[in-house]
């Protein structure tokens, strides 16, 4: 269990974080969402120890996070960086060793990952000679090479091609399935919706909404949507506020069971469900509130 507790951070007069708390249970994929400048990167950098918080702490499995444990984390910073004049395979293996792997383990793991990423024949090339997309894949390999216990990834999907997006998504799910807490930030909300178990939304240095994806959606439930194959107009028969969306009826503040009976009596009910907002809608709602 990784817990980020009550982080505060100021840069000069700017308050970057104002009491940010966030947690990821073993096997949980947490999406970290927020507008640019909201505090995502600052939070993640503090969690990874590359930035010190003014106050607050990072707790891992019940104890304050130490350097040795952090070495077993996988991290992808928002600003990508690789040694331009180092060979691809050598570079990925080097990071494996820095994370505590033996030379042989690191070499093997690097070769496996690069094969998954279709980079096997580029292993002997300098990173600067790869295309930008391939450099992104190498970056991904660097963050996964040591088989990390926890993943903290800042915008891992930005700049990735569809194949790499799949590899990355699978890697996140695999790590989570193996029991690792995973936290990643993204502006691609469809990916968040697809991959995450829970979401934390940050705005102006504060967490403004968080919870499991289902919880958040339930909280924001809008109206009941009913489609009926019926000739007559049922608007007047339903109770509550009834509006039409094409042929569908949208009902707010009504009795759903009674509405179902009325609809079934009138004809074949092809759809009866509460409209759920997308994460994107929840996000927009949360930040504008």
């Amino acid at each position: 269990m990784l817990e980020i507790k009550d982080l505060h951070k100021r840069f000069g007069d700017t308050v970057a974080l104002d009491g940010v708390s966030l947690s990821a249970a073993p096997g949980e994929v947490v999406g970290f969402v927020g507008a640019n400048g909201a505090g995502k990167t600052t939070t993640m950098r503090i969690a990874m120890g590359v930035l010190a918080a003014d106050s607050g702490q990072i707790v891992y499995n019940g104890a304050p996070l130490g350097v040795e444990q952090r070495r077993r984390f996988g991290y992808m910073p928002s600003e990508r960086g690789l040694y331009p004049k180092m060979k691809t395979g050598e570079q990925v293996a080097y990071f494996g060793e820095l994370h505590g792997m033996t030379k042989a383990e690191a070499k093997r793991s690097a070769a496996e990952l690069l094969e998954q990423l279709n980079l096997t024949d580029r292993m002997g090339d300098f990173v600067q000679d790869l295309s930008l997309g391939n450099q992104q894949r190498v970056q991904l390999a660097v963050s996964l090479v040591h088989d990390p216990e926890v993943l903290i990834l800042d915008e891992p999907f930005s700049g990735l091609d569809p194949i790499a997006v799949d590899v990355m998504g699978n890697a996140l799910r695999d790590r989570a399935a193996a029991g690792a807490p995973v936290i990643f930030s993204s502006h691609q909300l469809d990916l968040i919706e697809r991959l995450c178990d829970s979401v934390s939304i940050i705005g102006n240095g504060r967490i403004i909404a968080s919870g499991s994806v289902d919880e958040l959606k339930a909280k924001e439930v809008k109206q009941l949507r009913i489609s009926v194959d019926a000739d007559e107009d049922l608007t007047a028969k339903f109770t509550g506020t009834v509006t039409r969306d094409g042929d569908d009826y949208l009902i707010e503040d009504g009795d759903d069971q009674e509405a179902l009976r009325i609809a079934a009596a009138a004809g074949r009910v092809t759809r009866f469900a509460y409209d759920q907002p997308t994460i994107a809608e929840i996000f927009r709602e949360a930040v504008t509130r």
Binding site: G49, V67, R71, Y75, P77, R80, G81, Y83, P84
Partner: peptide
Amino acid sequence: VEEKSSRIVEILLTSLK
């Protein structure tokens, strides 16, 4: 400067002092 300008230092410092 190379490590700094390529931002790789941020990854390095997660596993090195």
